[in-house]
């Protein structure tokens, strides 16, 4: 299957995209997953997930707790490698390149696919050092001025710069929860990723901080491919262009967000959206 970036290719999966000309799948596909399975020891957590993720759009994974949406997200940048006993099967391709190929360098992959976690997890370092950490380990800045430039522009893109510009040397852990999460987003952006994975980025935040992050996600969409896992269906409806519904380790239904929420095909999806399961 030819899935190179820049070429638009519809797959048989996306029946509804053909009916809906505004679907973002018209855009180039960045990530392709086929028959992805995950085992934690003897327990199977994912049963053959196949999905295409389009460029410069927000794809939301929804589903009840334990449905495998976070597990699948962690497959995309191979974070499951750090969990002992986890085994991943199937293929995931980024711009046509198999990310589980033995020759692939996982460190480079994670530089291309950034991640924001459920709980804000700034390092116990200064705000500046938090953002500068990625560029430093990857050698992205030639000198101090370069690094300053990266830090400032990343903080700007994350909408945090105005709030912290006078205290860049203060610890990142001293910020509020919402600010910490935006700091983590800035930290991810600073490495210059193409894809940003967000694992329930607002679950530990209050409604106002959540609204700020959602707005930010909407802006970031212009430059990055974003995949977000969320518990909140309203959030999925607000920020995403495509939605995939997971249940018990299976991908039940996927399509344009509007279709999923207004006209779900599958009975289980319908039940979840109506609040009957999960």
């Amino acid at each position: 299957m030819d899935m190179l970036a820049g070429k638009v290719k519809k797959t048989s999966l996306n029946v509804d995209s053909a009916m809906n000309p505004t679907d973002v799948l018209e855009r180039p596909i960045r990530l392709t997953a086929r028959d992805v399975t995950v085992h934690y020891g003897a327990k199977q957590a994912l049963h053959g997930i196949s999905i295409d993720i389009p460029d410069r759009a927000v794809t939301a994974f929804i589903g009840p707790s334990g449905c495998g949406k976070s597990t699948f997200l962690r497959c995309i940048n191979r974070m499951n490698d750090t969990i002992e006993g986890a085994k991943v099967g199937g293929t995931i391709k980024l711009d046509g390149e198999d990310i589980y190929a033995p020759a692939l360098d996982v460190v480079e992959l994670r530089a291309r696919i950034g991640m924001v976690f459920q709980k804000p997890n700034p390092f116990p370092k200064s705000i500046y050092d938090n953002v500068a950490y990625g560029p430093r380990i990857h050698g992205l800045a030639r000198n101090k001025a370069d690094l300053d430039e990266i830090v400032v522009s990343s903080l700007r893109k994350a909408g945090l710069f105005e709030e912290v510009k006078d205290r860049l040397q203060e610890p990142g852990t001293g910020l509020s929860g919402g600010q910490q999460q935006r700091l983590c987003i800035a930290r991810a952006i600073a490495v210059g990723p193409e894809v940003i994975l967000m694992d329930e980025p607002c679950s530990a935040l209050d409604p106002i901080a959540t609204a700020v992050i959602e707005e930010l996600i909407d802006e970031l969409r212009e430059n990055y491919t974003i995949v977000i896992v969320t518990h909140s269906m309203q959030q999925a409806a607000r920020v995403s262009q495509r939605t995939a519904f997971f249940h018990l380790g299976n991908l039940i239904e996927q399509g344009p967000t509007e279709d999923i929420f207004t006209n779900p095909v599958n009975k289980q999806t319908q039940d979840y959206i109506m609040g009957r399961i999960g």
């Binding site: 940048n77 974070m79 750090t82 460190v107 480079e108 992959l109 994670r110 530089a111 950034g114 991640m115 924001v116 976690f117 459920q118 709980k119 997890n121 700034p122 390092f123 116990p124 950490y133 990625g134 380990i137 990857h138 983590c184 930290r187 991810a188 490495v191």
Partner: peptide, 18 residues
Amino acid sequence: VPRTLRDGAYGLGATQSE
């Protein structure tokens, strides 16, 4: 040390020793 902190570094592409 919370696992999320280590995940944060791995997620940025840090190696284990880094």
